[in-house]
Structure formats: C-alpha cells, structure tokens
Amino acid sequence: MSIVYKRPEVFTDEYMKYCGGCGHGIINKVIGELIEENNWQEKAVFVWPIGCSVYADKYFKVDSICALHGRAPAVATGVKRATPENLVISYQGDGDLVSEGMSEIMHSAIRGEKFTVVFVNNAIYGMTGGQMAPTTLMGQHTTTSPYGRAEEFTGHPVNMAEIIAGIPGCYYSERVTVNTPGNIRKMKAAIKKAFEYQMEGKGLTFVEVVSPCPTGWNMKPVKALEWLSESVISTYPLGVFKDLGKEEK
C-alpha cells in the first residue's frame, strides 16, 4: 500500500477548534504540507494575529509568536530582520488585517519587508459572531448589517490583493480560493511560490485566500462553498496581480 494522502507530520494531534467546514483547516493543512515537503520545519516561524486564525498556534510543531490585534506584520518585520534566514509567515484574517491592522500591512508593504502574508478573507468577523467586516459584500446580511451592507453608510468591500500589488515594495500578490479540489491545489502552488520568493530574499509576498465561514454566513458548509463560488468570487476575482519574479524571467 502506498500512501496517497495523510495528515501532515508537522501537525499535532490537537482537536481543531474551527467550526465544521471552515476554510482555515484546509489552509493550515496546505501550509503544513508545504513545510513538510520542503523541510522548512526548523526554519519556519509563524506570527499569529487575533481572530479565528490564532487557534492554529496549537496545531503546528513549529516556532510561533502571537502578536496584538492587527500587529502581526509589525512583529513579523522584527522576526525577519533579526533572523533573515528564517521563513516568516504572518497568517491573518480579514478583520485583523483589513480593519484593525490596515496601517501595519500597508507600511510593511511600503517598506518592502521580506516575509509572507497569508491573508484569509471570509468576508465577515467570524470569531466574534458574524459582524460586518470591511470585506463584507454589498448587500450581505450580517448581525451588524441586518438589512444588508449599504453603500451610503459603509462604502465598498476592500480588495487587498490589488491594493498591495499597487505598492512598489510588494514582490508577489495573488488571490486564490478553496472552493474546489482544483483551486485548493492552485492555492498550494501560490503559497509555495510566495515561500520560495521569501527564501530567495525578495520583497513582501502576499497571498489572499477567499475562504468560507459557514457559521458566520448561516449556511451549511456545502451551501457556503456554492455561495462562495457564485457571489464572493465575483467581488474578489481570482488571479495573480503582481509577480515580479515572472517579469524578471
């Protein structure tokens, strides 16, 4: 018997606290596979933010540090500057990166810091109970926008991958998703590319992952994936927005 797939060895046996069908589990698993396949276990340093994403600190047998709300890029800057040979990963959700920590991520990109940001965008504040986030879609119903998000009060959703791609310090920016097995493999390729650029000492690498939050969206997990494919992807188009490595070749 040959093993086609098994839980990555860098994972602990801890029971995952995420809700059933949460995209975080898939993304954590893919990052774990990449660390294992490339033997980065001794080099990887995670910087956890606040939000559902912070639960993952118990699931990896890898060094990590927990930052204040939104300040993960600031801490990652310090870790990367002190130990440039390490693989520094700032793993953040949308409430953390876009709302609370907007200035940190913007200035990290402006300074051209050489770490990787994995940005998990589920269009809602998941941990605190499904409130409206800056990334919430137009007309989307949440606990703080019960009549749907309206333009005159709250403006438009924020497309971070495009914004970061527009900053000269950014080396690589791509948006991927987890709605099908094929897209999960594309996400793995995108995160791998970002990690490789970082290990080569390039600028900021940014991967935005559009992810389902079945509990926050009040949907069953499979229905949440369908809604993600129908509605969320039209607001957040997938693709590579900047890849200086490809242009250099």
């Binding site: 040959s2 086609v4 098994k6 774990g32 999960i184 493999r185």
Partner: peptide, 13 residues
C-alpha cells in the same frame, strides 16, 4: 482527503 478541513482522512493506494 484534500478537501477535509480537519485532516481526518487518510487515503492509501
């Protein structure tokens, strides 16, 4: 196994 968010599935060929 690829889509399982919990990493609960192992596949052997």
């Amino acid at each position: 196994a690829t889509v399982c968010p919990e990493g609960a599935i192992m596949v052997e060929k």
